[in-house]
Design a protein around this nucleic acid. Structure first.
Length: 460
RNA sequence: UCCAGAGUAGCUCAGUGGUAGAGCGGUCGGCUGUUAACCGAUUGGUCGUAGGUUCGAAUCCUACCUCUGGAGCCA
C-alpha cells in the first residue's frame, strides 16, 4: 500500500517498509548509487530516493529521465545529506512509464507563458502544482465559510433563458443545424424549433435565481461556472470562470458589505493557515510582497467610501489621471488603483453609485439619484466583488425595468418575488479566480485556471 | 475591440544589410552523499507566416498570425 510523498515527508520516525509512487523531477548519479527526486503532487516538496547499484534493474534506473513515473518500495530513513529530513532507500523500483528526452519541463525555472502552452503538463511544475492545490483549498474554504454561517448552497442553472442583466455578451446554446436552420415565415431563424423551444444561453450570473431561493431559504450562496462571451483580452478576464454569489433576505447594503469583508478575510486566513508552503513559494518566485499584503488584509478593517466621496477624493488628489474624474462617470482602473494602492493602501469598498451607471435590479436610495451598489476593490487586481441591495419594491422595480427599456413579461417570475412577501435583500458576486490571484500573487487569470478559455483560445 | 511591445535551437536570450550565436537543457564520458552539483565533449535552426526591396535580408518595407503589457467591458 503506497503512501503519499507528503505523508512520507511528515513522518516522525523511520519506517522500515513503505511504498511511494510519482513522477521523477530530477535524477543525479553518485559513485555507486543514484539520487531520484520524486514528486506526486501531494505537496510542494520532493522525496529523495536512494537507488543503490545493487538494484537488479539499476541500469534501467540510471536511464530514468525527468517526467518518468515510478513506484518505489524501501526504507524511510533519516537523510545523511543536508536539505531534507527523510529519504527513501529503495529496495525495489518499478518503472511505470518512461518519458523521452522531448519532455519539455526542465529542472530550471520556466516562464508562465511557456508553461501556459503546455497546460496538460504544467501542473507537474512547482508553481502550477501549488496554484492548483491552493485553488482546491480556496474552494473548500468558501463552502466552509458559508456552511458555518447557515447558508444553503444552491445550484442555479447553467443553461438559462434569460439574458437578464443585459451586461455582457452571451454564449448561445443551441442544437439547431447552423447550415440549415428552420425558418419562420418572415425568414428568420425559428427559435421555437430549438431544443428548449426558445433561445437559450450559458449563464452570466445565478443572481436572479439565487434571489428566488433567498426569498425562501433566507441565506443562500451559489458557487459555479459562469460564462461571458465578451471579447476581453486582459489578464483579469476569462470567458469561463467561477463565481460565488451569496444572497441574503432581510439584509441591507451594510450587511452585504460586512459579509463581503468577512468572506475575503476568512479566505485569506484559510490559505495562510493551510497553504503556508505554497505561499512561501509564491512569495519567493511570484510576488515578494505577498505575505505582508495578506497579513495586512486580515488585520485591518477595509475602507468604506461612497462613490460621491471617492470622486471628491480623486478630484482633490492632485494626481494626473489619463481619464477624467466626474460625478456620473465610471471609475477607471487608474482611479481604483489610486484609491487602493496609493491613498488607502488597503482594500476599499465603494458604495452608493449613480443609478445611471448600474443595472436595473439595484435598490434606489432615498436621494433618488444613487443606488445601493458596492464594489470591493483590492490592490493589484481591482474589482473582486460587485454587489448591491436589490430593489424589493414592486412599483420601483417595474419602473426601473421600463427605464432600462426591458420587457416586463420576461421578468414575470422575478417580479413575483416582490409581489408575494417581498423583503429587503442583498447579495454580491465574488470572482473566484480573482480571489485566487489575490491570495497567490499570480498576475494572470489564465494561470489560475486549469485549462483557461479566453477569446480565440479553447485548446485542451 | 483599441494602443504599445515581442516572435531566432527544447527553454531564456544576443545578433540592426555580408558565413546563424551564447547560456541552460538533452546526449556521451569523467568525478562526486548529491541538492537549480561539478569538469570535458557533443547535439541542436523553415530566424512566426506570406509577399516585397536589395548583388545579398534574422536585420529594411507591407499584410497576416500568435503571444505579452496596458485600456474598455466586468467577476
Amino acid at each position: 500500500m503506497a503512501i503519499s510523498v507528503k505523508d512520507a515527508l511528515s513522518k516522525t520516525a523511520p519506517v522500515p517498509s513503505v511504498a511511494v509512487q510519482g513522477w521523477v523531477r530530477t535524477r543525479r548519479d553518485s559513485k555507486d548509487f543514484s539520487f531520484i527526486e520524486l514528486n506526486d503532487g501531494s505537496s510542494l516538496g520532493n522525496l529523495q530516493i536512494i537507488a543503490r547499484d545493487s538494484l537488479e534493474n539499476y541500469a534501467d534506473v540510471q536511464r530514468l529521465t525527468t517526467g518518468s513515473s515510478v513506484r518505489v518500495e524501501g526504507e524511510l530513513v533519516a537523510s545523511q545529506g543536508k536539505g531534507q529530513q527523510w529519504e527513501l532507500v529503495a529496495r525495489k523500483i518499478d518503472i511505470v512509464g518512461r518519458a523521452d528526452d522531448s519532455y519539455p519541463l526542465q529542472k530550471k525555472g520556466h516562464t508562465p507563458e511557456f508553461l501556459r502552452e503546455i497546460a496538460h503538463l504544467r501542473p507537474r511544475s512547482n508553481l502550477f502544482g501549488s496554484v492548483f492545490r491552493v485553488r482546491s483549498r480556496l474552494a473548500f474554504a468558501i463552502h466552509q465559510f458559508f456552511q458555518e454561517r447557515g447558508f444553503v448552497y444552491v445550484h442555479t442553472p447553467i443553461i438559462t433563458g434569460s439574458d437578464c442583466e443585459g451586461a455582457g455578451e452571451l454564449f448561445r446554446v443551441t442544437t439547431l443545424d447552423l447550415k440549415n436552420p428552420p425558418k419562420t415565415k418572415e425568414g428568420l431563424v425559428d427559435q421555437t424549433k430549438d431544443f428548449f423551444a426558445r433561445s437559450t444561453y450559458l449563464t452570466v450570473s445565478g443572481q436572479l435565481e439565487a434571489e428566488a431561493f433567498a426569498c425562501a431559504l433566507s441565506k443562500v450562496y451559489t458557487f459555479g461556472p459562469t460564462f461571458r462571451a465578451e471579447n476581453s483580452n486582459t489578464s483579469r478576464h476569462a470567458s469561463e470562470f467561477w463565481m460565488i454569489e451569496p444572497e441574503m433576505a432581510f439584509t441591507d447594503l451594510n450587511g452585504d458589505m460586512d459579509l463581503a469583508e468577512q468572506l475575503v478575510k476568512y479566505l485569506v486566513y484559510a490559505i495562510q493557515s493551510n497553504s503556508e508552503e505554497e505561499l512561501q513559494l509564491f512569495a519567493k518566485f511570484v510576488d515578494k510582497d505577498l505575505i505582508s499584503r495578506l497579513d495586512f488584509v486580515v488585520e485591518r478593517p477595509f475602507q468604506r467610501i461612497t462613490y460621491t466621496d471617492a470622486v471628491d477624493l480623486l478630484k482633490k488628489s492632485g494626481e494626473k489621471f489619463e481619464f477624467p474624474v466626474e460625478y456620473g462617470l465610471n471609475l477607471q482602473s487608474e482611479h481604483e488603483r489610486w484609491l487602493t494602492e496609493k491613498h488607502f493602501k488597503s482594500p476599499v469598498t465603494v458604495f452608493n453609485y449613480p443609478k445611471e451607471i448600474k443595472p436595473f435590479y439595484m435598490r434606489t436610495n432615498d436621494d433618488g439619484k444613487t443606488v445601493t451598489a458596492m464594489d470591493l476593490l483590492v490592490p493589484g487586481i481591482g474589482e473582486i466583488v460587485g454587489g448591491s441591495q436589490r430593489e424589493e419594491r414592486l412599483d420601483v422595480l417595474e419602473k426601473n425595468l421600463r427605464d432600462h427599456k426591458m420587457d416586463l413579461a420576461d421578468y414575470k417570475w422575478y417580479l413575483d418575488l416582490r409581489r408575494y412577501g417581498t423583503v429587503p435583500h442583498s447579495g454580491f458576486g465574488l470572482g473566484f479566480e480573482r480571489m485566487l490571484m489575490f491570495v497567490t500573487g499570480v498576475s494572470n487569470i489564465r494561470d489560475v485556471i486549469p485549462f483557461a478559455r479566453t477569446p480565440g483560445s479553447a485548446e485542451f
